[in-house]
Amino acid sequence: MKQIKHHLTEPLLMGYAAGTLPEAFNLVVATHISMCDTCRAALAEYDAVGGEVMIDAEPVELAEDALAATMALIDNAPAFDMPRAKVLRGGVFPAPLQDYVNGDLDNVKWRRVGGGVRQMVLETSDQASVRLLYIPAGTAVPDHGHRGTELTLVLQGAFVDETDRFAAGDVEVANEDLNHTPVAEEGMDCICLAATDAPLSFNGLVPRIAQRFMGI
């Protein structure tokens, strides 16, 4: 059992339960919940509250053509075949993430971003972006701040920054108030799942130049 210290915030759990988060954030939340008994129990409570709210809500009258319009949208939607994920027991990636990678760590198509760090951007809606990050043990991610919210979930290894240590299952919720330099601990390469709703704000010139090409 993982000893998870850093959990999701109440607004994130409420947003996930209500279906108001961007897809990229949903993926990080779902992956963390699959690893964390505490947040999974909290989400069940929010789901129960949401169900009670729906029961007590006043009914809303639909337009006469609502059903026909909905069926037309379904009929005209482009065909899309979701690749069947290879769900692997005992792998690095929990099931929600395996659905996006179509497997586990061996299926990741890494792209180098400098300093030994690699990434793979996952396909989601354009409201926010999410990527897998591979940070070699002992390597630092360039010093940066945030123009929005960043969720970073550790899947393997651990990293430390100015706030604390984050190990497998921990999630760091960063916003405009945080400037930090995450460093992967020695001993094991660190793999993270990170979602952002705005570009990072790097303090160094080289990372700022690379940012234009890497979409970070």
Rank of each mutant, 00 (worst) to 15 (best):
L155F: 08
T9S: 14
G138C: 08
D161T: 10
L88D: 02
D65I: 14
L21Q: 02
G50R: 01
P78R: 08
F80I: 07
S34V: 01
D47S: 10
A42W: 07
T163E: 10
L155I: 13
G50S: 04
V49S: 00
W110F: 02
F202W: 13
G169E: 07
I191Y: 12
V60S: 08
Q98K: 14
A194M: 12
E162P: 11
D106M: 06
V101C: 09
A198S: 13
G204H: 06
V154P: 07
K5D: 05
D143A: 11
A72H: 15
V121A: 13
S125V: 01
G15L: 05
A72Q: 13
R165C: 12
D75S: 09
P142H: 12
V173S: 09
M214Y: 13
R111I: 08
L133V: 10
G114E: 03
Q156R: 13
L200S: 09
A168E: 13
F159V: 13
I216K: 06
L178G: 10
D170E: 12
I191V: 15
A194F: 00
C192F: 04
P11C: 04
A174Q: 10
P182E: 09
T31N: 02
E162C: 12
I135P: 00
L67C: 15
L151E: 03
C192P: 01
T70N: 15
E64A: 08
Q98W: 04
L153S: 06
V117A: 11
D104T: 06
D143Y: 14
L122I: 07
A184F: 09
D37C: 00
V60T: 15
H6V: 04
V108F: 01
V130K: 08
K5W: 05
A63D: 15
Y134S: 05
P207N: 11
A210E: 03
G115E: 07
A48W: 00
L97P: 01
L13R: 01
A72N: 12
G116M: 15
D56G: 00
T9L: 12
H180I: 08
A210F: 06
R165Q: 14
G148V: 11
A174K: 07
A198I: 11
L133K: 05
R111P: 01
A137N: 12
V101K: 04
A68W: 09
D106W: 02
G138Y: 15
V160N: 10
N175Y: 05
N179A: 13
P22Q: 03
P83T: 10
A48E: 02
G114M: 12
F93A: 06
A30E: 11
Q127P: 03
N203I: 12
V206M: 15
T181H: 07
M35S: 00
A174C: 09
V108A: 02
D75I: 06
R165E: 12
V171E: 04
G91R: 03
D126V: 14
D177I: 05
A24D: 07
M71S: 13
P78Q: 10
A41P: 07
N179T: 04
P136R: 13
V87M: 12
W110P: 00
A167E: 15
L73V: 14
M71A: 14
P207R: 10
R147A: 14
E150S: 11
E123W: 03
V108K: 07
D81Y: 06
M14F: 00
K2W: 04
F93Q: 06
A79W: 09
M14W: 03
R212P: 00
R118D: 12
D75C: 05
V113R: 13
G145P: 09
M1N: 09
Y16N: 03
A184K: 05
G157V: 07
A198N: 09
